[in-house]
Design a protein around this nucleic acid. Structure first.
Lengths: 118, 118
DNA sequence: CCAATTGTTCAATAACTTTTGAACTAAGGA
DNA sequence: TCCTTAGTTCAAAAGTTATTGAACAATTGG
């Protein structure tokens, strides 16, 4: 069971920019960038939006080619397609992430405390 | 008579990305970048959209801080705020322009891509 | 098997964006 | 002054995107 993703050469500039032009999705991308290499499931983002709404935003990111979602059991492991994006639009995703990291208006994932398992 | 523009530090990342996530506006930005230093009036873009619709798109770009519009007689001279954008979001506008230049799906201003056979 | 966990889909609605045409303002030239 | 050029504003229509809740499917653990 795999979910549909565009190939690198099918990723569209206006679609990527449009998808990133939303504070919730930019917050997701910023968080994914900060956890590079660590696959995260959708529930990580529940403080940004409802479960249903998150499903919508994560599908937008995936369909635009910004993220990859891999099905693992009942989870979807989400990663940023940073290398693919950089190959397609050199420098773009790096500058977006750098700007997003500095943006105090974006909603935060997980608040400012590290989450500790009980 | 001056039109409202945000200061550099008021330019918002999600708003800029959202405004650039539109093929017509991306085509305008690409053309402005190719004519850097040359102030252009709105009529330059009439092959992208109607006069009224252009007024709408150019206002979006201006209000987001992507362009500057200066009133000169009955004209508005439009320029890209490239230095301001680069100061606010380093590397972002350069990578967007570079990607836009390579995007064959964007509409062309002035028949640039429309080479007619002899 | 049963229940919990994870996430999707669907339909409705709310909210926003884009496009249009007609009417308008403001400047400049004959 | 009258006409043209350049561009705006307004209201309506059309189209798109975001958000919600209820119902659904698939997997895992007890």
């Amino acid at each position: 069971m795999t979910l549909p993703h565009p190939n690198t050469d099918q990723i569209s500039l206006p679609i990527v920019l449009g998808v990133l032009g939303d504070p919730t999705r930019l917050a997701i991308v910023r968080y994914l960038a900060s956890k590079e290499g660590v696959p995260l499931n959708c529930s990580q983002f529940l403080d940004l939006a409802s479960k249903t709404n998150l499903s919508y935003h994560l599908a937008k990111l995936r369909e635009a080619g910004v993220t990859r979602a891999e099905v693992v059991g009942t989870n979807r492991m989400i990663t940023l397609r940073r290398a693919d994006l950089d190959a397609r639009f050199p420098g773009l995703i790096d500058s977006v992430i750098a700007a997003a990291v500095d943006d105090p208006a974006l909603p935060a994932v997980g608040g400012h405390d590290l989450e500790m398992p009980a």
